[in-house]
Amino acid sequence: MTMLRLPRVKDAPAAHPARRMRIVATGMLVAMAAVFAIARATAHLHPAIGFVQAFAEAAMVGGLADWFAVTALFRHPLGLPIPHTAIIPRNKDRIGDTLAAFLRDNFLTPAVVARRMRHMDVASAAGRFLASPSGGDGRLREGASRLAADILEALDQERLGGMVKGAIGQRLRALNLAPLIGQAIEAAMRDGRHGPVLDGIIHWADRTLEANEHLIRAMVHERAGKVLRWTGLDENLANAILSGLRKMLAEMAADPEHSLRLKAEEGMAKLAFDLQFDLEMQAKVAGIRDEILDNPAMQRWIEGMWEQARAGLLRAARDPGRA
């Protein structure tokens, strides 16, 4: 005959010891009730049986009291809505707040935290992790990434975005752009990198002249006298003006030493100097900077830049292996 083999204690799940303890306690309570009943029925046989009855009665009362007290902490005994039972479920929020206040006031004080932190070698731990970031099973990195992502998502997006935009705007407003622009122009002229800029301006002027040729002809026609209009000389005058302007632009594009081109370079050099040392010019640049930052389009661009950065941070934190 094959006998059933009960599971050993070390093989049983964690919940089995508690279940066995409840069975043992209930069995002892039933046993004490049986002893009390037998002692009560046979008390007339011997005076010593009274002591056994009193012991069993005390054991039953103590067991019932303990059962009721423990059960009342977590639920209603026997499912009955008895007052002052299920204490923890009904008061869990208040208990949590009280416990948090106790921990904060007694264990999270600056003196206690400082004393604990004083014994922590954070630099050494960080150095060991950076020296072998792939060591272990990667749980530290994954946990830190998830924590960073959870914190970033838990923060108020509107308030955080407003803080970031405000910080970016404050930094940009505190930036003195005029000297930087002046130094960039001066460096470009010193290295000869301003030539393509002038060539681009000349080509732009030539295209603009070609696109607005009718406006120049109309202007000459309106300002010419009746005699010139009657003889048609206004058309010749307009052709001469347009031809002269085209020739001048072509010569400026072909000759780096053209007088007008040299004048333009002198103007650029003066502009670079004024941007670096003229307070009035710096104030004008600062005013333009502030107008650009106050533009709603610029505000939307900064907001979009922050949203893209936030989305990138969340993607990197959620999937650090791919990042």
Rank of each mutant, 00 (worst) to 15 (best):
H214A: 15
A205V: 10
G244C: 04
K247P: 00
D191Y: 04
L279D: 13
M248S: 11
E257K: 13
A269Q: 13
M252R: 01
G192M: 02
N239D: 14
N176E: 13
L242N: 02
A254Q: 12
L245V: 14
L180Q: 03
D199C: 05
L172R: 03
R190P: 00
A238L: 05
A269L: 13
D255Q: 11
G244F: 07
L198D: 02
L172N: 02
V285N: 06
R246H: 14
M252V: 04
L271I: 10
W204P: 00
R193Y: 10
D206P: 00
Q276Y: 02
A188C: 05
R171I: 07
Q183I: 04
G244E: 11
N212P: 06
A184H: 08
A178H: 02
E213P: 00
Q170F: 10
H221V: 04
R173V: 09
F277N: 15
L228K: 05
I216K: 01
A250L: 09
S243I: 03
I202A: 05
A224P: 08
A250V: 09
M281W: 01
I201L: 15
A218M: 10
H194E: 13
F273P: 00
D274K: 10
F277G: 00
A211K: 14
W204M: 15
K226G: 15
M252W: 05
L242H: 04
V197F: 14
D255H: 07
L245E: 06
F273L: 14
R171W: 11
A205T: 11
A254F: 03
M252E: 05
V285M: 08
R261N: 00
P179D: 12
L271A: 14
M248G: 03
R229K: 12
A187G: 11
A254V: 07
E265G: 06
H194P: 00
M189D: 04
A205W: 01
N239P: 03
E222I: 03
L279R: 14
A240I: 01
A218I: 02
E186Q: 13
N239A: 12
K263I: 03
N212D: 11
A184C: 01
R173G: 03
A178T: 07
G267Y: 09
L260E: 11
A254E: 13
I185P: 03
D199Q: 13
I185C: 00
N212V: 01
L262F: 00
R207M: 06
L271M: 15
L275P: 06
A250Q: 08
P179Y: 07
M268G: 12
M281L: 04
I185T: 05
Q183L: 08
D234T: 03
M268I: 11
A250F: 04
L242I: 15
R229T: 09
L233H: 03
G244V: 02
Q276T: 13
T231K: 09
L233W: 08
